[in-house]
Design a protein around this nucleic acid. Sequence first.
DNA 1: TAATAATGTCTCGATTTCAAAATTAGTATA
DNA 2: TATACTAATTTTGAAATCGAGACATTATTA
Lengths: 144, 144
Amino acid sequence: MSKESIEQSLKLFIVLSRAHRSINDHVNTFIAANGLNPTEFAVLELLYHKGPQPLQQIGGKILLASGSITYVVDKLEQKEYLVREACKKDRRVTFATITEKGKEFIERIFPKHEEQIDQVMNVLTEEEKATAITLLKKLGLSLN
Amino acid sequence: MSKESIEQSLKLFIVLSRAHRSINDHVNTFIAANGLNPTEFAVLELLYHKGPQPLQQIGGKILLASGSITYVVDKLEQKEYLVREACKKDRRVTFATITEKGKEFIERIFPKHEEQIDQVMNVLTEEEKATAITLLKKLGLSLN
DNA sequence: TAATAATGTCTCGATTTCAAAATTAGTATA
DNA sequence: TATACTAATTTTGAAATCGAGACATTATTA
């Protein structure tokens, strides 16, 4: 654990934070221009791709506290992008289901969202992307 | 811009987000255990390493809106980790300066903070860290 | 020089998030 | 079966952040 090693680690932390912030700002600006915040978008995307979900599962998947789920789901329900549906088997559970309007929204927005990300990531070659994925995966796993 | 390329880009976005979140949660838990939030810590570290700063410069460096700077500097001033000082040359300007108590705090905490980060980053070899730094730098720059 | 523009900080209201407590429903135990 | 435990959701209050506007000061320019 030399001094240089620590400095490298710190530098890596900084460039990782900057890269993340930079990309996120870009992506979030696009999402905001379409009337949602990043969390709302994440929830809607989840429902679109994985089907109806119990509220609690949503919290688990996008890492949100239970109180926040209620809030975000309320917002999306007001916008008519999803509906709450009671679970018949277990009356404690509420499912969130994407509506037609929600589907249309995602289908309209998602391709551009992907393009935005691709546009940024394409400063790297395919090989560099593959390398970055491998390294970042290790970092993401290093704590669990 | 093939289909595979976009998928790689999306995957990279996801692993980048996860890595960042994972590391950040780790680091923030440590900082919180010492009574600060990440932003307060960032401001204090900036003042420690770069000396007294006009409030506005702080906002520029850690990317915070002007209203938020006022708020964070208030918090740190209440904790007696910094003081506001009027600028004599330009009476619009206020400097934030770290106090002795603030210095002691950073000197006590910072080495452990570095260790925390190093501990996580050391799942990578030195060479891998260097590679990651190079790639992430490109991503961070790709938008400005 | 006087008017106008720009700059730095603060205030205020709105948004988003969390954590803890409350509520309601289901499960297990004595 | 009553009683306590667990689970899912909502409510509530606090914290953190932003953006727009207010205010004082400084800079520019006509």
